[in-house]
Design a protein around this nucleic acid. Structure first.
Length: 440
RNA sequence: GGUCCCAUCGUCUAGUGGUCUAGGACGCGGCCCUCUCAAGGCUGCAACACGGGUUCAAAUCCCGUUGGGAUCACCA
């Protein structure tokens, strides 16, 4: 066990979607590969938007995917601790009170925008006099607080982006405490990362500018700055982050017969220089993880491609991987898997071979004649071809005319595995009856 | 608009100045196999955004243009 530790820190303010899953997955895989720990942290500082049902969905999704965690924390349970840290930073002058209203700030931003100026907070609050503050308080205004950035270059060596550099002057002092006293995500996240000993932060590239200011927060509280890895964001087919992408959840996929390892294999390799191919265990997938193979441009996520890949996954699925949920033996599984669209469909074939079905008889004369020619014993792998040849000779039928009615009578299905294989699985008794139109 | 990032087949990418008439994977087309749907085998089509430089030589370096994305929230 190394001291590597990562965290997945979702906010339960919406249903977990494909983008979140990808972030969680990369964190999990990295922990696994490095022999480290994976932690779940519920970032529920926004008490208004955080909902239990979102959190439940999130947990269920992670568990189904196999992305289990060894430790968990909840930000809403740690406010007192955040207060202590904040007090120290206020004393040090790194956090300062501001009295602008949301409307005033909005106005400032718009004006800066109109002038072509960067919409960076002007730090007016740093110049308040005692009188100003007294006046604001008298008006009934409550302060919100910002984290003061120190001028200079902020740089870090990102695992996927290489060296990233920002000038602090191009960044705004982040608001970290709301007017009502509640926390925004930025500082609590940093405090938690320090306290829980997070060594690597793997997240989407929408966080890169946050990282710049958060690095100064790590330094301000005397914590060790973790290593960062910012993944390019997934986009939809059209380029934009489509609504579909932001709403496509694990359950939707699962209900469509998409396997958990299909999702994991696909998301782990999409946007990398490696081929997207089936991995049958998260452990194997973790061993294959290589951040240097991740590209810098945004990969397009195509749901159809995922579903297509799911077929490939199922068609090659080793028995070992599914034996706990398909109640057939290995031989049976191997014979039918290449014809399945969903793993669950094995039941259809199990029914056909081992249970009763209503045969579909298209030509009674023909199939009953075929039934008479069907040998009763000494079956082997050539039985079908020997039999079908006799039927062919006796009836004069060939090609589709010959096979289709037999397939329909034996299986009730238009398509499926080779009849040669199926006949052996069905056996004489059922086959004979079905050819005669009898439910068997 | 400021800052940052990105730009090679339909898609994900390899490519770090000559070995590139640009390689692979997925998809797509064709052929084979075949009773069907698959699976499998073979094979084909298909790309360096644009314009300037630098250089004997540029997909590769530089500048610009265009296009895309992120961020600039009292969301995370």
């Amino acid at each position: 066990m190394t001291n590597i530790k990562v965290r997945f820190a979702p906010s339960p303010t919406g249903y977990m979607h494909i983008g979140n899953i990808r972030t969680a997955l990369f964190n999990w895989l990295w922990a696994k590969k490095m022999g480290g720990k994976f932690m779940l942290r519920i970032d529920d500082t926004d008490s208004v938007r955080s909902k239990k049902e979102y959190e439940d969905y999130l947990r269920e999704s992670l568990v189904w995917l196999g992305l289990t965690w060894e430790e968990e924390a909840r930000q809403s349970a740690r406010f007192e601790h955040y207060n202590e840290v904040t007090q120290k930073l206020i004393q040090q002058g790194r956090i300062y009170p501001c009295y602008e209203t949301a409307e005033e700030l909005e106005f400032k931003r718009k004006r800066a925008f109109a002038k072509g100026l960067p919409p960076i907070y002007d730090r007016q609050a740093l110049n308040y006099t005692q009188e100003d503050i007294a006046k604001f308080e008298a008006e009934g205004r409550k302060p919100h607080y910002r984290f003061k950035l120190i001028q200079g270059e902020i740089a870090w060596n990102d695992v996927v982006r290489g060296w990233v550099k920002y000038e602090a002057q191009n960044l705004s002092d982040t608001i970290i405490i709301r007017e009502d006293g509640s926390y925004l995500y930025h500082l609590p996240s940093v405090i938690d990362d320090c306290d829980f000993g997070i060594t690597h932060i793997v997240r989407g590239e929408d966080h890169v500018t946050n990282t710049a200011s958060q690095i100064q927060m790590f330094e301000a509280i005397g914590g060790k700055v973790p290593t960062f890895a910012h993944l390019p964001l997934l986009t939809g087919k059209e380029g934009k982050l489509s609504k579909r992408l932001g709403s496509l959840g694990v359950k939707d996929l699962k209900d469509n017969g998409v396997e958990n390892m299909t999702i994991c294999s696909f998301l782990a390799k999409l946007g990398t220089s490696e081929a997207i191919e089936p991995f049958y265990s998260l452990e194997d997938l973790a061993q294959s993880l290589d951040f240097s193979k991740i590209g810098r441009s945004q990969p397009k996520f195509d749901e159809e491609e995922l579903k297509h890949f799911n077929l490939k996954y199922i068609h090659t699925l080793p028995y070992e991987t599914v034996k706990d949920r398909v109640f057939v033996d290995e031989d049976f599984w191997e014979k039918i898997k290449a014809n399945l669209e969903k793993v669950e469909d094995y039941k259809v074939w199990n029914n056909i071979c081992n249970d009763q079905i209503e045969p579909v008889v298209e030509d009674t004369n023909f199939t009953s004649q075929a039934a008479k020619l069907l040998p009763q014993d000494n079956w082997n792998c050539d039985t079908f071809s020997v039999w079908i040849n006799e039927v062919k000779t006796a009836t004069g039928k060939k090609g589709k005319e010959l096979f289709h009615p037999i397939r329909m009578a034996l299986t009730g299905q238009e398509n499926g595995p080779e009849l040669k294989v199926l006949l052996l699985l069905i056996g004489y008794e059922k086959a004979f009856k079905r050819l005669n139109g009898i439910k068997a």
